[in-house]
Amino acid sequence: MIGTDVVRRNENFLQVVRSYYQLTKPRIIPLLLITTAASMWIASEGEVDSFRLFITLLGGTLAAASAQVMNCIYDRDIDYEMLRTRARPIPSGRVQSRHALIFALVLAVISFSLFLVYINLLSGLLAMSGIAFYMLVYTHFLKRNTPQNIVIGGAAGSIPPLVGWAAVTGDLSWAPWILFAIIFLWTPPHFWALALMIKDDYAQVNVPMMPVIEGEESTVRQIWWYTLLVIPCTFLLVYPVGASGWLYGVMALFLGAIFIKKTWLLKQNPLDKDMAKSLFKFSILYLMLLCTAMVVDSLPFTHQLFTAMVNFVG
């Protein structure tokens, strides 16, 4: 493999810490934690135990970090070939693959131990299944072999809400699976918008992302259809499940309308990378605000306010 391990040393301790921190791809993790937290708030009906929340988010952070480090090890060859990623810790030689693997395993062990000791076995097993699915199914089998890689592989990023729900209740009901479905259907529009922006990079290293194999127009059509699927799915939390209420429903409608508009504009201009970038950025904001609405909607204060408003009008 190209760029397996380049011999180069960090200059000081802080640079070593920074290199290992970069291996975890920290910018990806907050979005996973937001979906975990939202699930916990809904499951606890707005009254989350702070210690349980802290341990669950810490364990989730370590599990996600472990998966990203393993991904960096596996993809070190294509990271070396792309100028955009050649400066990453492993292809640049600042971290050796064997050391990165030890780091990833330590993170996974600590994560599972935290869940097992302080939360419950189910949440720990779900967190570990996220790592396994991301590495074995997405990174190993799908990423380099099929343009549908992110569709199936998106299940890995959909697991955090299951972890959060299990951490509160010890089991899984319909609501966390709807949260799973929302993120699963949200992932293709989100990731393919990014893929449209960096299509040439994927083509350079022969990674069969959708825009590379089927072109921009086909990719944008599929982004459109997945957007039309995810928006109705968000309302299932309101009806028939009843896990969220009116405030979340209004926010889901508002955000969904903007999402559809941005996707429609991209559909009319599939070669416009600025529109793809706009959709990509909004997709992140969409999920963050949607989860925030879930949290606020679950709070007892919100329910009391709604009841007071109904009584006042009545």
Rank of each mutant, 00 (worst) to 15 (best):
W165I: 09
D201N: 10
T219M: 00
T219C: 01
I258E: 08
N269F: 07
L101R: 13
G46M: 06
G170P: 00
D272P: 02
P147Y: 03
W177A: 09
L62F: 10
D272V: 03
M288C: 05
Q204K: 11
N269R: 15
Q15N: 09
I131G: 00
D77P: 08
G170Q: 13
P232Q: 01
N206H: 15
R88G: 14
H99M: 08
V137N: 01
V163C: 00
P161E: 09
G124Q: 03
N149G: 10
V295E: 08
L162A: 14
S298G: 03
V151L: 12
Y21G: 15
F254R: 15
T219N: 00
H190E: 11
A65K: 08
A203G: 12
G60R: 09
N71C: 04
I119M: 08
N10W: 02
H140N: 14
G314A: 04
I159L: 11
V212N: 09
G245Y: 01
A127H: 12
N311F: 02
A243I: 02
D274N: 13
G60T: 13
A156W: 05
K267S: 02
K262P: 09
F280R: 13
S158C: 14
G46T: 05
A293M: 04
S113A: 12
F235N: 03
L279Y: 01
V106D: 10
L33N: 06
N206W: 01
R88C: 11
G215I: 05
I152D: 11
T307M: 07
Q304P: 05
K143W: 07
I55V: 14
V163E: 10
A252K: 01
L194W: 09
H190D: 14
T234K: 05
E45H: 03
V48P: 11
G157N: 15
S97R: 07
I90C: 12
I102G: 08
G314M: 07
V117T: 15
M294Q: 15
V250Q: 05
Q204C: 10
Y239Q: 13
Y248S: 01
G153Y: 03
R9W: 08
P189L: 00
R88M: 11
L14C: 06
V241W: 01
P91W: 02
L116G: 14
M251H: 05
L126Y: 03
L290F: 04
V313W: 07
Y226E: 11
A64Y: 04
S111Q: 06
P232A: 00
S123Q: 03
A203W: 01
L101N: 11
A108S: 15
M40E: 04
A43I: 07
T234M: 10
M197D: 08
Y134N: 12
L121W: 02
I258A: 10
Y74H: 13
F112L: 13
V16A: 06
